[in-house]
Write a protein that binds this DNA or RNA. Structure first.
Length: 831
RNA sequence: GCCCGGGUGGUGAAAUCGGUAAACACAGGGGACUUAAAAUCCCCCGGAGGCAACUCCCUGCGGGUUCAAGUCCCGCCCCGGGCACCA
């Protein structure tokens, strides 16, 4: 007994600040979270726990990052307590437009700013209690990392997956750079919201569509969040159909006669609906299509030229708007429908895109909404070739019908179903060389950026040899330190102004040449970082084979679904490419991926402009990192996101206080067994938490632990050590600092995360002596009876009928049917 | 337009192989302990009626299936996110 209770109380008060500092220092001193390369090599139960590394902004680590990382950290700590050797690295994704723009704004060089930001981020990452291995970290802007990013580029080049194309690209006039299609949102630049224009530039592309089939097919049996898989499938956009070739009709193209024998006189189209070929009443070429001049008649030439000029002026976004009226002009030329020999007019219109399929379509206004709209606008014939049930060949079309049905107005094919006709028509045309089956996917990955803040593309342009890769042993191509790195409107990267750097001898012929002045898309840096982590100890190679074979693929990856189609798709593609090069032994990088939801605040998105961003440091100062972590995980379903409400944090804070107080007040006998009723609750709790943590059901797992706490403390009873120890261990993934402290106070040496094991539940201890069964009469709840477990229907019914209220509702009625759900409910159906 | 999520008390949310709607927590109210505060402990807390026992109503809206529907089916409305003249 303490001589001075007041003093004693003071000493025992839960002080998050002191506890967290103590354990942060202790973990660091003992290297609890750091693995040496020898440990990496010898680990017996490797578990690679990955989370998306942050971009180290000047504003500091966002609470949304902490939300994401806490969920992942809980998983890592849980795995560790279950005997896994957990490798949990973190790094910094610091290249890219965001950093560069910020540096421009404050008038500094990002090379000087980034280290400060990283330092700041590191401090918060350590403070919130992440179990990070700081022995293995990456900074994508450090030459020790990006030399290998350049190496990845060269490897892909070696594999034939890199090619240079003159292509229309999205150009942001404000950022003065090319944007990937995914970086254009609703026609505006993702970053600065300027209207994006269209430009033609030579660019480096990664041929990701070569892997589209594999990227799509593998999804089927991957253990990933469903929403992420669906987003990827939609992005890949597999489209199966046929390529059909139409001859240009005789007499067309009088203005620019072509040699029909040369094979240039056929227009190829891609269609997913070859069954509607008889309904193709005209064709449309993209205005940029190379055959436009070949089909254009002399008297149509001025109109065609004018239209093409007008379209070229329009930006790619304006061009792609779906809600504007259809425009186009007739070329004066005709093509021949291979299925029936009909002469059909050839138009050009901007609703047909050069970048998809073949840049030309057969127009079937009867069964395609866009073609229908165009045909109406320009008075072109509309023919029905599919009849839905109850319709026939003559039924008028008020709008395009794209549904199922049988063929009409289609010669020999009349009466076939859509599915059968697709096959049959392609078969016939195939025999004549006019068609083949074809599958299309969406765009390749443009990796060129006309900017400063990125890894220079390791290519050298020589007038004699063309584009020549920098030899591997000459890497890195260092990014020169430029005083003025502002992008200009020349379409060239600011690196072109670094003359000494710019001029370099051709690796092939030795003559004077110059470097590629573009840097790579930031997504290339982040596309392979997880492959680098285990190998950061090696500066002589990118990916150490043994360590990589041991630790990869990644066991668990957790991150935001905003990266579903960018980062995650690129990472998969790069992994497949490196696998096929024989560099790594697996072709899918992440065994398991879970998307977490968005953390919002009081119903609204957090943003700097709204001024409603929560500072993690302020919360940690007030409540401690443990309470913050627990609260973030308690807010709502992790995969759905959460709504941060200021007052709600009180609940988790009280919970930790009660846990603290329970340990302080616990009965001192360490061998005293748990009270039976408490023990049952304990085993139920262990079971639930153990089942729910791997499924990221953190909020309900925490609720279960709170419930158990209510049992432990019911009516102010004195808790027993054996009732508390397992609780401290299962709370520990959420609140690691305070649980370490309590574990020590409960009398255990050696540290919780270093030596404790996750408790197991004993099924025999789950069984209640009695349980309550709900009693319904005609489906309405009328009472409750207490019976022994697994009681039979008859005895439960007998007990139920003794209940006064139940008896009252049964009075004067006959029980016709009894529905008994074991250990839950009985429903007496009476009339 | 298409594809995903989602809509439940004052609030954040639980419960979906159909089986007691609102667990857990916040806010609010009352009480215990305390000189006081903090922490802790107990009670109340969807709506209407009733002294009470209880009864009726309630999961965005309208239908349906079922002994039983937040959960399944049909038809809508609203919010959030993604994709988008992709042929």
């Amino acid at each position: 007994m303490a001589a001075n209770p007041t003093m004693d109380e003071k000493q025992d008060r839960y002080s998050p600040e002191a506890v967290e500092r103590k354990w942060r220092e202790r973990w660091e001193r003992d290297g609890v979270n750091r693995l040496t390369d020898a440990q990496l090599a010898s680990a017996e139960n490797p578990y690679y726990n990955l989370m998306m590394f942050p971009y180290p902004s000047a504003e500091g680590l966002h609470i949304g990052n902490i939300y994401a990382y806490t969920g992942a950290d809980v998983n890592g700590r849980f795995q560790r307590l279950n005997g896994k050797d957990v490798f949990q690295p973190i790094g910094f994704d610091a290249f890219g437009i965001h950093s560069e723009n910020h540096a421009l704004k404050v008038g500094a060089n990002p090379q000087d700013l980034i280290p400060r930001n990283i330092e700041n981020f590191t401090r918060t990452l350590q403070r919130f209690g992440g179990m990070f291995d700081w022995n293995h970290t990456v900074d994508t802007t450090h030459v020790s990392y990006y030399r290998w990013t350049q190496w990845v580029f060269l490897k892909l080049h070696e594999a034939g997956l890199v090619e240079r194309r003159e292509a229309p690209v999205n150009w942001c006039p404000s950022c003065m750079t090319v944007l990937a299609n995914e970086q254009v949102l609703g026609g505006l630049c993702e970053r600065c919201e300027s209207t994006v224009e269209q430009r033609e530039l030579p660019q480096w592309f990664f041929r990701i569509t070569d892997y589209a089939g594999q990227l799509l097919d593998n999804l089927a049996d991957m253990d990933w969040s469903g929403v992420t898989k669906k987003a990827q499938a939609a992005w890949i956009g597999r489209s199966q159909g046929a390529e059909v070739s139409f001859a240009i009709a005789e007499g067309s193209g009088a203005a620019n006669p072509v040699d029909a024998e040369a094979g240039g006189a056929r227009i190829r189209v891609f269609t997913t609906r070859p069954d509607t070929l008889f309904g193709a009443t005209y064709m449309v070429l993209a205005p940029e299509h190379p055959l436009v001049d070949a089909v254009t008649a002399a008297d149509a030439q001025p109109a065609v030229d004018a239209y093409r000029a007008e379209v070229a002026r329009r930006d790619v976004v304006e061009r792609q708007k779906t809600d504007k009226d259809k425009t186009g002009v007739f070329t004066g030329g005709y093509a021949v429908n291979p299925v029936n020999g009909a002469r059909i007019p050839v138009w050009i219109a901007d609703y047909v895109l050069m970048g998809y399929g073949t840049g030309a379509i057969m127009a079937v206004p009867g069964h395609d909404a866009r073609d229908f709209e165009f045909a109406q606008a320009f008075g072109l014939p509309i023919v029905r070739v599919i009849a839905a049930p109850g319709e026939d060949a003559e039924t008028r079309l008020a709008e395009a019908y794209s549904g199922d049905g049988t063929l009409v107005n289609s010669g020999d094919f009349d009466g076939l179903t859509v599915a059968d006709a697709k096959q049959a028509i392609v078969e016939r045309l195939k025999a004549e060389g006019d068609a083949k089956a074809q599958t299309n996917y969406l765009h390749d990955w443009c990796v060129s950026r006309q900017r400063y803040w990125g890894p220079p593309i390791p290519m050298i342009h020589c007038t004699a040899c063309g584009a020549v890769p920098v030899p591997e042993d000459e890497l890195p191509v260092e990014l020169p330190h430029l005083e003025d790195f502002r992008p200009d409107d020349s379409g060239q990267s600011p690196l072109a102004r670094a003359t000494d750097w710019f001029n370099a001898p051709c690796p092939a012929c030795g003559r004077s040449a110059h470097r590629d002045t573009d840097v790579t898309d930031n997504f290339l840096c982040s596309g392979w970082y997880f492959l680098r982590y285990p190998s950061t100890g090696r500066d002589d190679l990118a990916i150490e084979p043994q360590l990589t074979a041991k630790w990869l693929p990644v066991d668990s990856y957790i991150g935001g679904n905003e990266h579903a189609v960018l980062h995650l798709m690129y990472a998969r593609f790069l992994t497949m490419a490196l696998h096929d090069l024989g560099i790594i032994g697996f072709s899918e990088p992440f065994k398991r991926f879970r998307a977490h939801g968005l953390l919002i605040r009081e119903g609204r998105k957090m943003s700097k402009s709204k001024g409603n961003v929560i500072s993690p440091d302020a919360i940690i100062n007030q409540y401690g990192a443990d309470t913050l972590r627990l609260y973030l995980m308690f807010l709502g379903a992790y995969e759905q996101g959460g709504d941060y409400r200021g007052s709600g944090i009180q609940g988790p804070f009280s919970f930790l206080n009660r846990l603290w107080q329970s340990v302080a007040e616990a009965d001192g006998d360490p061998d005293l067994p748990p009270e039976p009723e408490v023990e049952r609750a304990l085993h139920r709790t262990i079971r639930q938490v153990t089942e729910q943590l791997p499924e990221q059901q953190f909020n309900t797992a925490i609720a279960a632990m709170m419930e158990y706490m209510n049992v432990v403390r019911a009516d102010g009873r004195t808790p027993r050590i054996k009732e508390l120890t397992p609780l401290v261990v299962i709370v520990a993934p959420f609140a690691p600092h305070v649980c370490e402290e309590l574990y020590e106070r409960l009398g255990f040496a050696g540290g919780l995360f270093a030596s404790a094991r996750w408790p197991a539940h004993d099924p025999a201890k789950l069984v209640d002596a009695t349980l309550n069964i709900a009693v319904q009469v005609n489906g309405k709840l009328r009472g409750e009876v207490t019976v022994s477990p697994d009681a039979g229907a008859e005895s439960v019914r007998a007990a139920a009928e003794l209940d006064g209220n139940v008896a009252r509702h049964l009075a004067g009625k006959e029980v016709r049917k009894v529905i008994y759900v074991r250990n839950k409910l009985i429903n007496l159906v009476a009339a």
